[in-house]
């Protein structure tokens, strides 16, 4: 399946892109992360510590164990700092 992957804040800076489309068979967010990590040194740096990351699947906050079946977009970002 094709998934749009979005990156924000320092995750975007480390990856070196704000979005990319990947072809993946990953069943969960965690499995997708394992695939993305191998894409480049930047990806590896961005995903070095997943405890420092948050994820949204189709623009709703989700966990790393969230299933990807039917998902179109996965976003990775640091904890939010609004307000």
């Amino acid at each position: 399946m094709r998934i749009d992957v979005r990156y924000f804040a320092w995750v975007r800076e480390r990856v070196g892109a704000s979005r990319e489309t990947v072809e993946t068979g990953a069943a969960t967010v965690a499995a997708l992360v394992a695939e993305l990590r191998g894409q480049s040194e930047g990806h590896a740096a961005a995903f070095a510590d997943v405890a420092a990351l948050r994820v949204a699947v189709d623009q709703a906050l989700a966990g790393f164990d969230a299933p990807l079946a039917g998902a179109r977009e996965v976003a990775f970002f640091p904890p939010m700092t609004g307000g």
Binding site: A9, P78, P79, M80, T81, G82, G83
Partner: peptide
Amino acid sequence: YLKSRAPFWKKELRRSGPVWVAA
């Protein structure tokens, strides 16, 4: 809730260089 659950990220542009604000 806006501080921790709305998708905003702040980056400080300091004299010493840019710093992402940590939650």
